[in-house]
Simulated scan of single mutants.
Amino acid sequence: MIEKPTQTKLDSLTLEQQIDLQIATSGPISVATYMGLCLTHPSKGYYRAAEPLGAKGDFVTAPEISQMFGELIGFWLVNLWQQMDEPKSFTLLELGPGRGTLMADILRVACRAPGFRDALNLRLFETSPVLMAEQKARLEVYDPKWLQDFESFDDGSVLIVANEFFDALPIRQFVRKEKGWHERQIGLVDGKRAFGLSPTPIPPASMPDAVANAAPDTMLEVCFAAAEVLTRLGKVIAQQGGALLAIDYGYGTTQTGDTLQAVRRHAYADVLEAPGETDISAHVDFGALGNVARAAGLATQPLANQGEFLTRLGIGERAAALSGANPGSANDIRTAHDRLVGPDQMGKLFKVFCAHSPGLQPPGFAA
Rank of each mutant, 00 (worst) to 15 (best):
A296T: 03
Q301F: 00
N163S: 13
D344N: 15
A355D: 12
T33D: 11
V175Q: 13
T218E: 04
D85E: 15
G196C: 12
F125W: 10
G241P: 08
H337G: 01
K9E: 15
L92K: 12
E94A: 05
E64K: 06
E277W: 03
A24E: 15
V271R: 06
D118Q: 15
A55T: 14
V341L: 09
A367M: 11
Q67R: 13
G328Y: 09
L230H: 07
S30G: 15
F365Q: 11
K235V: 02
A325I: 02
P204C: 05
G290F: 00
R99C: 04
L298W: 00
W76K: 09
V161M: 07
P358H: 14
D332H: 14
L313M: 12
A110Y: 05
R232M: 04
Q173K: 02
T127F: 02
S198A: 15
T200Q: 13
E183A: 08
T91L: 05
G27H: 01
L230W: 09
T254G: 13
L245D: 06
S30Y: 07
G328L: 09
V161I: 12
V263G: 09
S43M: 05
G96V: 01
L230V: 10
L131K: 02
G45K: 07
Q22T: 13
V78D: 13
S329L: 15
L313T: 09
T91C: 14
A225S: 08
L124F: 03
A321E: 14
K235Q: 13
L131G: 01
Y142F: 15
Q345P: 00
R334Y: 01
F90I: 13
T200Y: 04
W81K: 01
A49Y: 00
Q135D: 05
T300L: 11
P201R: 06
P275T: 01
L310V: 06
R176M: 15
G252E: 10
G96R: 02
K44Q: 13
I237F: 06
M103S: 03
D149R: 08
S323F: 00
V229F: 03
P358Q: 13
L159G: 10
P275Y: 07
K56W: 00
G290A: 12
D58A: 08
L197P: 11
Q135S: 06
I29C: 02
D217A: 11
P343I: 12
L188Y: 03
R312Q: 14
A269Y: 14
A325G: 12
S152D: 14
G347A: 10
F309I: 09
G74T: 11
L102T: 01
P129Q: 08
M35T: 01
R318E: 09
F224C: 04
Q261L: 08
H41R: 10
D167M: 04
D258E: 04
W76N: 12
L272H: 13
G45W: 04
Q17K: 15
G241Q: 08
L322Q: 14
F116T: 10
A319E: 08
A133T: 11
L360W: 07
I186Y: 03
P358A: 08
G100M: 01
T14P: 08
D20S: 13
F224N: 13
K348P: 00
A246M: 08
Q345C: 01
L159V: 07
R334C: 02
S66I: 03
A321S: 13
D285F: 07
A330V: 03
K179C: 07
S43I: 07
N163E: 07
A32F: 05
F350G: 11
G242V: 06
D118C: 01
L289V: 04
L72Q: 03
T311F: 00
A49L: 14
A110I: 04
T200F: 07
I160M: 07
